[in-house]
């Protein structure tokens, strides 16, 4: 997969330029620029408190950045300046969907209803802003049936069909994560932002999630930006990795490149810059020794 996208001409879907976000005295993001390419799975990684969620909140309109520009280019060529839009417009017009680090489902609604709420704007239009729907016009009935079909499609994909009529709050954690992704996909996005989708999942659930993300990209062509702590997930599915530390970009490139970037290693191990060389030597020693130690 990674090779394929590398050979394609790089077509940025999202461009972040000189983004800064200040909370009082704290520079949560400091002059961050990066690009996410169409059709790619881009990973945004970094230690705790690096500002990853803040970047997401700026992209999706939940925070107004102190400075900088975020450009979303849709497939049709239309461009949106996300930093000027309010949160719901980012989803509705620019077609950027997101999930949350601490899952935000409508826990009292059923799984199916969660997916129907996500198709709100489409259905509102079909129901003539409720008026025609209230009068029972057939156009709305058709749209409603279609929205159920759409929900079924995503239930199938997220492996939740059996739980469709249960309250979302009743699902196990892994299923809730998948439902949140399915719900975001039901809004019909071109760009999907996932905040730590694998957090709290067991290895098996984590594999299922990887499968889901790959199939989202393959079947819908949606580009994905994901925050992740689990390195195995990042290395496994991402085409492009951006590393953040203290609100600044310290590395950017394909997973292989980032994995061996001394700055990244230092950031993750929490050492001073001048000790980096030392650490890298140590790591290389371990790497040489490792293959013999752990035969599989």
């Amino acid at each position: 997969m990674a090779l394929e996208t590398d050979t394609m001409t790089k077509d940025p879907i999202l461009k972040v330029d000189h983004l800064s976000m200040r909370f009082g005295g704290l520079m949560a993001i400091n002059d961050l620029s990066f690009e996410a390419y169409r059709g790619d799975i881009t990973a945004l990684i970094g230690p705790n408190g690096a500002g990853k969620t803040t970047v997401f909140n700026c992209i999706t309109g939940f925070y107004k950045p102190t400075m900088g520009m975020i450009t979303m280019r849709q497939k049709a060529g239309k461009e949106y300046l996300l930093e000027r839009m309010s949160d719901f417009e980012v989803n509705r017009d620019a077609k950027v969907a997101r999930t949350f680090q601490n899952i935000r489902l409508f826990s009292g609604l059923t799984v199916l209803e969660n997916l129907l709420v996500a198709q709100h704007n489409k259905l509102m239009l079909a129901s003539g802003y409720t008026v025609l729907g209230l009068l029972g016009f057939p156009a709305y009935k058709k749209a409603a049936a279609q929205s159920i079909e759409q929900a079924k499609y995503w239930l199938e994909k997220a492996n939740l069909t059996d739980r469709a009529d249960d309250p979302a709050g009743d699902l196990p954690y892994g299923a809730q994560r998948r439902l949140e992704i399915a719900r975001a996909m039901c809004t019909g996005p071109e760009f999907l932002c996932l905040d730590e989708p694998a957090a709290g999942l067991n290895p098996r659930e984590s594999l299922v999630l990887n499968e889901l993300l790959r199939s989202i990209r393959k079947d819908t062509g949606t580009s994905i930006l994901l925050i992740e702590h689990d390195m195995s997930v990042v290395m496994e599915i991402s085409d492009h990795v951006v590393v953040l530390e203290y609100g600044q970009k310290i590395s950017d490139g394909n997973p292989e490149h980032v994995k061996h970037d001394p700055k990244v290693i230092a950031a993750y191990l929490g050492v001073e810059d001048d000790e980096v060389e030392e650490v890298i030597e140590q790591i290389e020693e371990i790497a040489v020794a490792a293959p013999g130690d752990t035969p599989k």
Partner: peptide, 29 residues
């Protein structure tokens, strides 16, 4: 009863459950 089954009614209930999630789904709260 009718409204509850329409997008607007579902949006009301979704709003009660989680307003931020509503906005992330493009619903003008």
């Amino acid at each position: 009863i009718r409204l509850r089954r329409m997008p607007i009614g579902r949006a009301w209930e979704a709003l009660r459950e989680d307003e931020i999630a509503c906005r992330s789904l493009g619903i003008n709260t």
